[in-house]
């Protein structure tokens, strides 16, 4: 690829006609980096009939919009092909994506096919002199890795919620450059056949005021009644992390996190949950978080208000009993 300029590109991710909040988070950061490097913050918007979305991208110095029927439904191959062609002719310094389902696919495809560096799951991105340094979160939040993105171009994915969205929101009307399809898409070998809505659950955990959440630490489906008893004593609902749902111990409608529900209960009781970023994304805004984990180093303790380092199977019976006797006393 040709030597890159200093522009910072943001892939404007949208679903069902709405830009996702990570797009604004990235735009705010792109403004800051572009300012430091002497480049522009550029939003790249792909789709069909998406021009109205440009109105909310005023934080960008310029919006590059490519519209075509073949871009209407997101497929990694079509969107990556267009981004690749645009990046090859315009040579940005950095291409930023949310570390989301579509962002992860596009970032890896572009880095692989263009043979340029990629850094994933970043929590911070800072300009230091002419350098851009990115800190990735790995090993479920137990490690951080700081890396130089190089002279560009490079691709970076950023964890949702890492930067404030406010800096990426502006009521300015951005300059929009409508670009014709830069590459023929007739070789794209995939198409969206339908959208699948989440199956309605028996309960809506997003509405429950008290949630008792179980993670892999629950060990077996047989142990679930212990969590159910605690939930009953608290007037709450049982939910869980992804591994518990993948095991089939709880239905998908009870999953909290990135690919499940975002919840904001008055009380979130986390039992045997390590606190991986994908889980934390779904529950960090609960009013009160109490975490129980046998590992004192578990990242969940940096999100929780109160923590207990204990084997949950020792604490649960005592806690359920204590709640029971308090109720009896109150009655």
């Amino acid at each position: 690829m040709s030597p890159s300029g200093q522009d910072i590109w943001v892939y404007a991710e949208h679903q069902r006609g709405v830009l996702s909040s990570v797009t604004y988070e990235l735009l705010g950061k792109a403004r800051e980096l572009a300012g430091a490097l002497g480049g522009r913050a550029v939003a790249v918007l792909l789709g069909d009939g998406v021009h109205p979305l440009t109105a909310t991208l005023g934080a960008a110095d310029i919006v590059i919009a490519v519209e075509a029927p073949s871009l209407a439904e997101f497929t990694p191959q079509a969107h990556a092909a267009v981004l690749r062609a645009l990046a090859q002719s315009r040579a940005p310094r950095l291409l930023l994506f949310g570390a989301t389902s579509s962002g992860m696919d596009l970032a890896s495809l572009l880095a692989g096919s263009l043979r340029i560096p990629l850094i994933v799951n970043c929590k911070t991105l800072t300009a230091e002199g002419g350098r851009v340094v990115a800190t990735s979160q790995l090993c479920g939040g137990k490690l951080l890795c700081e890396a130089d993105t190089g002279d560009g171009p490079a691709v970076v994915t950023v964890i949702s919620g890492a930067f404030p969205a406010e800096q990426g929101v502006s009521d300015r009307t951005p300059q929009v450059e409508v670009v014709p399809l830069p590459v023929a898409l007739d070789t794209v070998r995939m198409r969206v056949t339908r959208l699948l809505e989440p199956a309605p659950g028996d309960v809506d955990i997003a509405k429950a005021p008290v949630l008792v959440a179980v993670g892999r630490g629950i060990q077996r489906a047989d142990n679930l009644p212990m969590a159910e008893e605690l939930a009953a004593a608290l007037g709450g609902t049982v939910c869980g992390s992804r591994p518990v749902v993948d095991q089939g111990w709880l239905p998908l409608s009870r999953q909290v996190g990135k690919s499940g529900m975002i919840v904001k209960p008055r009380l979130y009781f986390a039992l045997g949950i390590s606190g991986a970023p994908e889980h934390v994304e779904g529950m960090k805004d609960a009013d009160l978080i109490i975490a129980v984990n046998s590992d004192a180093q578990a990242p969940i303790f940096s999100v929780a208000d109160y923590g207990v380092v204990v084997d949950m199977f020792e604490l649960l019976p005592a806690l359920t009993q204590e709640l029971g006797s308090r109720k009896t006393a109150a009655a």
């Binding site: 679903q15 070998r189 198409r191 969206v192 339908r194 690919s259 499940g260 529900m261």
Partner: peptide, 12 residues
Amino acid sequence: EYAGGLAAEIEV
């Protein structure tokens, strides 16, 4: 899979 339990079926 996308966020919030939404998914797309894609023919490849």
